[in-house]
Design a protein around this nucleic acid. Structure first.
Lengths: 144, 144
DNA sequence: ATAGGTGCAAAACTTTTGCGTCAAG
DNA sequence: CTTGACGCAAAAGTTTTGCACCTAT
């Protein structure tokens, strides 16, 4: 998906270490937008000597390479998303889970045009974060 | 604007202290979505003995009361907005300033309906954050 | 007078960094 | 071999908390 890995000019040849692979794997396998600490706990099961700083370092590198997507704005921690396609996030205020909401890019672009015309702001990246109630918690509520 | 101040049941009668008033004032006067530290620096000019923890405490209380709006997701710090009307935020990647973008609630609501129907997610609050280039920096760029 | 708020200092937390050693290419 | 990466420990940066004193109501 990202063949280039941010290594445009051979200046910083990245090595695919066991740790980096395990960390990328953990983000993908955990699925639900884990924080650095959650990734750490996951990786350390199979690789007990891994350090938290290695996890932070690699999450940063992987994000820089575009292999994962950092998600800020919910709580204090940064979450990481293995889904690098454009999409939005919904956070359930009951269970706290973060879910992916497929983006209708059309609408975001439409707003983008308005901002340029009305406010002179040239939008480059649009992040939408929605708080609400997920389907699971909605069902639970309706059942009693 | 918020007569009720989150004091539904008289359980926690809030006092309007000099510090709280000064902090609310500072957020309003600074305008540009200040962080706790920026508010602290502002308030301390007129009130040299004020403490940073008082600023944090009151920003939390004021946000809880709906007098100001916490803005997360850009950098590590929380920014505070005295504009409590629904609106979006644009962050200029050149000068770093955060500007208000008037919300076209229509489009956000439209997406909201789609999320409910397609993903079963009941949206309650939608936060849109846009990164790009503000009009000032756009002009500066074009001039050379 | 009562109890919410303040200032100070210390702690809590997330994230970053310096450094000697290890290992990927 | 070379040097990017690792693990550890220490530091940095933001935000919270405990506590004795103060002050709005």
């Amino acid at each position: 998906m990202n063949m280039n890995r941010g290594n445009m000019n051979n200046a910083h040849p990245r090595r695919m270490t066991q740790q980096r692979r395990a960390i990328l794997d953990a983000v993908a396998r955990l699925g639900c937008h884990p924080t650095a600490d959650q990734v750490f706990e996951m990786v350390r099961r199979e690789m007990p000597k891994v350090s938290l700083s290695t996890v932070y370092r690699n999450l940063g590198i992987l994000a820089e390479q575009g292999d994962i997507l950092p998600v800020r704005g919910y709580g204090d921690e940064v979450h990481y998303d293995h889904n690098t396609h454009e999409h939005y996030h919904g956070i359930c205020r009951i269970c706290g889970r973060m879910i992916d909401l497929p983006a209708d890019t059309v609408k975001a672009s439409a707003m983008s045009d308005e901002w340029r015309e009305r406010d002179g702001f040239e939008a480059e990246e649009i992040v939408v974060t929605v708080t609400g109630i997920c389907s699971g918690c909605l069902n639970a509520t309706q059942k009693g």
